[in-house]
Computed example of a mutant assay.
Amino acid sequence: MTASLTLYSYWRSTTSYRVRAALNLKGVPFETVPVDLLTGAQRDAGYSKMNPGKGVPTLVLEDGSVLTQSLAILDYIEARWPEPALLPADPLARARVQAAAYTMAVDVHPVNNLRVVTHLRDAYGADTDGAMDWMRHWMVEGFTAFEALVRDDTPFAFGHAPDLADLCLVAQVYNARRWGVDLTPFPKVRRIEAACLDVPAIAAAHPDQQPDAS
């Protein structure tokens, strides 16, 4: 099947990672267009007109419609391609999956993304060690909460197949390993990461497998 969707992403972006994984799991073909965040490509006039938030990912649909913000994109993907489901149909179970997912996507990611850490350095004089301590602190806080929210009797966060919580977690664990977070206190996090990376569709979404990986 020819790709009809275009995903603007950056290889190390956790938000792009989770969207790539969702599209792969659902068997939706897409073309990747790299946006180099380190060189400021997200601030170029053409790109920022498409995505006023000047971030990634951006998903361009077949008719040219543009979607931004990873959670909104994931919601669209789930509605349009409902199988395999990333959210349970039962309202209570759905809310629990979303709570765990948002712990990563809403509590941890926003305070640790590139623009925030850059502002910490530029505006408040944080050195490299200080910036890394900041990121590690919020990841540990998030993983501690995540451990308490998910099940301990299933390979994935809430069952035997990956869901939204798993995709948000595995992307954040990539960052945690990159920045040297000690994951020993988080056995559920480590178990879920291993289960996710055993799924070919998720493994193919890993940053190291992207065309712009360096």
Score class of each variant (00 low, 15 high):
W11T: 11
Y124D: 11
R121C: 11
L61K: 11
Q69N: 12
V108F: 00
L149K: 00
W179I: 11
D127S: 00
E31S: 15
P34I: 09
A85D: 08
K54C: 13
P88T: 12
R177A: 11
G180N: 09
Y47V: 05
R115K: 12
A3Y: 11
W179V: 02
V97E: 14
G46M: 10
A72C: 03
V33C: 07
R80K: 14
G130A: 07
Y76L: 13
S70K: 05
A45P: 12
P187K: 08
L183Q: 03
L5V: 06
A89Q: 10
Y47N: 09
N175R: 01
L74F: 13
E78Q: 14
L164H: 03
A105E: 03
L67V: 12
V140Q: 02
L114Q: 04
V106C: 10
G46R: 13
V66C: 09
R136F: 12
L87Y: 11
D182P: 04
Q210M: 12
R177K: 15
Y10W: 07
T68R: 15
D133T: 06
S16A: 10
I192R: 00
A176S: 05
D127M: 00
F186G: 00
C168D: 10
S9L: 08
T144Q: 09
L67S: 05
D122H: 08
Y174T: 07
A171S: 13
T154V: 13
E141S: 06
L61I: 13
A131G: 04
K49N: 09
N51T: 10
D63Q: 06
M104S: 06
G159E: 12
M132D: 15
L92N: 15
H206P: 02
R80T: 13
A176W: 00
